[in-house]
Design a binder for these strands. Structure first.
Lengths: 108, 108
DNA sequence: TTCAATAGTTCGGAAGTATGGGACTATTGA
DNA sequence: TCAATAGTCCCATACTTCCGAACTATTGAA
């Protein structure tokens, strides 16, 4: 049975998006989610295995509250997906610009 | 006599840019600087007169360290300018996307 | 049904960060 | 030389972030 949990924020704010993605770990989580067809459990989406579970949970909470991801629960796992369409509707071009900058930085 | 002070960061990082602009006051400072032909003193660029001088000074330090602005000293005032070309060279499209999102948010 | 395993959340303390008041520096103009 | 102005520096308080430990919820097996 799949059910939505932790309903994501209704109103996505710019400050929320920027401060959420200002953290390199959260940015990598979002990048990972978009690459992997957009659905991963929390631990699977972790960019670094040494991060404490509680810290990771906190990062996902921040991403949810910023309206960047939506989480549904399937069995014991949580499935996380980027709300790409909602973000694009609210702030056209923003997410892509940030992700491209992230690629540019990694490539440098 | 004009002289450069507080040399701005050499390497502009994405995390630095995002966390600097995640603060609404700093984002408004950058918007204000770009509107007013890009040069304003610290107090003139303050979006809100009730902010403490020390807090404002701190915001400008963050913007400088993120590489977003350059500060030169002319007499008793500091002149601040957005390093638009440097930012564009490092992260094409990023600053414009953020500023347009800011306008979109304010208009909503 | 009971028990263990797994996935996340919540709590609390330690460490880091932001805010603003007051003292300080530097420049100008009287 | 003195007062005024623009910013910076320092410090105390308040707020965040990180992690370990305890907790909840779901599944699957004995």
């Amino acid at each position: 049975m799949v059910q939505f949990v932790h309903p994501a924020t209704k109103d996505i704010t710019l400050a929320g998006v920027l401060s959420a993605l200002a953290d390199p770990i959260r940015l990598q989580i979002v990048r990972g989610l978009l690459q992997e067809s957009g659905c991963l459990s929390c631990t699977a989406a972790s960019p670094c295995p040494t991060i404490a579970k509680s810290t990771l949970s906190n990062h996902f909470r921040v991403l949810r509250e910023a309206g960047l991801i939506q989480t549904s629960k399937k069995g014991v796992e949580h499935q996380n997906a980027v709300r790409a369409a909602d973000i694009e509707a609210r702030f056209p071009g923003l997410l892509m610009a940030i992700l491209q900058s992230s690629v540019a930085e990694a490539g440098a």
